[in-house]
């Protein structure tokens, strides 16, 4: 009986060059068996190159990558039997139906026991089994891609930007499928630039920027380490609170003329601010206290937003 390795993926000093371009610059990380590992980075950061090297699609310039204790450069044939991949911008044969597409990939793996109906159900595609691929919406295509990635009951599943380009509703449908993978204990390597996706699904997060890993840990650890503060939002206020808070040494940021955001280091500071406002007769109608999310961590570490639509106006 074989025992599962502690680490499903071990990347050591991985470097990838395209001519003069250094796409991946000496990165190292481990992915534990059974965990969901989110790989975050803006476009061009090197995340797709990294994941494609691990998936055996590309070859590294230097360094080593072991997947399920096998070297990706020499054991491609064995590795592909044990992994499932949803590539970025997944596409398939236009004229095949959903069922035929899953059957085709199952036949490629020689899997006679693939539960085609089970996969269709998991991907919530029961109503679409006889629809041709070309007629499916973006979200349905991605869900079919995930079902295909599972035809060989893989030990490691790679999902390269599974929700990019999807509307919020379709994205949530895909998340449901991903959550069921997590529940089933699969090792999942998730490449994304959606913070909420990583926070919802990931056990471990790695942030890559300009080919380098700049942060690695659980979402809580990363936030604790890099954005250990609270954001207080005071709603429906006039000019008085702004001056009161400023006099206390904080840096209030006006928002929408009616709200004020204040970054505080400790929960105690919130109580002090509220007391001061009450004393000044300028108590707000309502307030909101939030912990920063991974977006703020990313912004702090890289100085750039992950997506154009992700800026939240959070004070640094």
């Amino acid at each position: 009986m074989t025992t599962e390795p502690e680490h499903a993926i071990v990347v050591e000093h991985l470097t990838k060059r395209y001519g003069d371009l250094l796409a991946v610059n000496d990165i190292s990380f481990h992915v534990r068996t059974g965990e969901v590992f989110a790989f975050l980075g803006p476009n061009g950061a090197g995340k797709s190159t990294t994941v494609e090297i691990i998936e055996t699609i590309r070859t590294p310039t230097s360094g080593s990558v072991c997947l399920l204790d096998m070297d990706v450069t020499t054991r491609k044939h064995d590795i592909v039997q044990r992994i499932g991949v949803l590539p970025q911008g997944f596409s398939s044969f236009d004229k095949l139906t959903v069922r035929e597409t899953i059957q085709y990939y199952a036949r490629l793996f020689g899997s006679r026991t693939t539960d085609i109906d089970g996969l269709i159900e998991l991907a919530n595609l029961k109503d679409k089994v006889n629809e041709q691929f070309r007629t499916l919406s973006g979200g349905l295509k991605q869900r079919l891609g995930i079902a295909i990635a599972l035809v060989n009951d893989p030990e490691v599943v790679f999902l390269d930007e599974p929700t990019t380009g999807l509307d919020p509703r379709a994205r949530r449908e895909v998340w449901k499928v991903l959550l069921s993978l997590k529940k089933n204990g699969k090792t999942v390597f998730l490449t994304t630039h959606y913070m909420e996706e990583a926070e919802l699904l990931a056990d471990t997060v790695a942030i890559i920027s300009k080919g380098k890993i700049i942060a690695l840990g659980t979402p809580d650890e990363l936030i604790e380490r890099n954005a250990n503060y609270l954001v207080l939002t005071l709603k429906a206020v006039d000019g008085t609170p702004f001056e009161v808070i400023q006099k206390m040494g904080f840096e209030p940021v006006p928002e929408n003329h009616k709200h004020i955001k204040v970054r505080v280091e400790h929960a105690d500071d919130i109580r002090k601010i509220l007391n001061a406002l009450t004393d000044a007769g300028a108590a707000p109608l309502s307030l909101d206290v939030r912990r920063p999310n991974l977006e703020a961590v990313f912004l702090k570490l890289t100085g750039e937003a992950l997506r154009d639509d992700s800026l939240e106006g959070m004070p640094e």
């Binding site: 998936e55 991949v85 398939s92 790679f158």
Partner: peptide, 16 residues
């Protein structure tokens, strides 16, 4: 066409 659509990239992660 299949390369441009990314189908070959997907196939390269299968036993074919």
């Amino acid at each position: 066409e299949l390369r441009q659509k990314g189908v070959i990239r997907k196939l390269s992660t299968t036993p074919i």
